[in-house]
């Protein structure tokens, strides 16, 4: 009786484990491959080695790419947090002409496949490039034009904003009006109320969106791939693409090491922050337009 009970309960788990195993096996393969000379299926051949790791960790390009990827992820996080939280407040709290239209348009924009806009954005970035200094003369990010990290950052932020604004608006919608009124009567300006009374209350939402943006920026591929021509000076995902798609024979050991190297921070980050990420769905989605 008991044993039967147990086996019936475990059936769904067994089923789930089976259908997700290809993914696990894939990651396991990548992991093993970084420490071996060659593999036949899942079986390491030719013995274990740390050469793959040594090769990429000594490669100055990699550290350059890590830096770029980090700047992109961090820039996306900061940009999204600042703009979304500032834009969502009036959308949640103020009555102005065009508010409803703006909200529905940004929702449509979010649903829009970004690939369809790539060519148009290419032209926009080219125009931005023509602007002196701002276009391609800034330190660290290179500028905001075509073939610069800043340009990629700009486009990434733009694509993620609809989601960010809607999430933040959901959090603002959940804060009682009375608290804001109390602050206004106590002597706050509208800006100060936003800054000192409302933002602290949506801190979990900000944390969640920030983490989300960071991970998105860290692993983004299509935008950097399209708008940064030289994959060697771009980000890790494009470098990975270069390693696996060139006309030279592919060194799977090195490629796997780079892939794992890109994956690890995300994995750790996720482990420590999933509590906040869940809040996006439990807290932020409440509240309508």
């Amino acid at each position: 009786m008991k044993i039967k009970d147990y086996s019936i309960k475990s059936l769904p788990y067994i089923f789930l484990i089976i259908i997700s195993s290809p993914i696990f096996i894939g990651y396991l393969w990548v992991f093993l491959r970084t420490f071996t000379r060659s593999m036949y299926g899942m079986r390491p051949t030719g013995g274990f080695t740390l050469n793959n790791w040594a090769l990429i960790l000594k490669d100055p390009i990699l550290w350059n790419l890590v830096g770029n990827t980090f700047i992109l992820a961090l820039g996306l996080t900061i940009g999204i947090l600042l703009i979304s939280s500032a834009a969502a407040y009036p959308l949640s709290r103020m009555a102005f002409r065009g508010r409803k239209i703006y909200l529905s348009l940004s929702l449509i924009l979010h649903a829009f496949p970004s690939v369809t806009l790539l060519i148009a954005i290419f032209f926009v970035l080219r125009w931005i490039s023509a602007i002196p200094i701002f276009g391609r003369g800034l330190p660290l990010i290179g500028g905001f034009g075509y073939n610069t990290l800043g340009g990629v950052l700009l486009v990434s932020i733009a694509f993620m904003l609809p989601l960010g604004i809607w999430l933040m608006k959901g959090f603002f919608d959940n804060i009682s009006w009375d608290i804001e009124r109390a602050a206004l009567i106590d002597g706050c300006s509208r800006f100060r109320t936003w800054r000192q009374i409302l933002l602290p209350q949506i801190r979990p939402g900000l944390a969640a969106l920030g983490i989300f943006a960071f991970m998105h920026g860290w692993s983004s591929f299509i935008i950097p791939y399209t708008f940064m021509v030289d994959a060697r000076t771009a980000v890790m995902s494009t470098y990975l693409n270069l390693l696996t798609s060139g006309d030279r024979p592919i060194d799977y050991g090195v490629a796997s090491a780079v892939a794992l190297f890109q994956l690890l921070p995300i994995l750790f980050f996720y482990l420590f922050t999933q509590k906040y990420l869940l809040k996006i769905f439990s807290g932020g989605m409440k509240g309508g337009s």
């Binding site: 009682s176 009375d178 009124r181 109390a182 206004l184 009567i185 106590d186 009374i197 801190r203």
Partner: peptide
Amino acid sequence: PKERDIGMVFQSYALYPHMNAYQNIVFS
């Protein structure tokens, strides 16, 4: 509102949740 020299008490209390009672009271 801040120029009107008024105090207001709400049904929902409307205390600032991230501050303690003292900080709430002296906020103005």
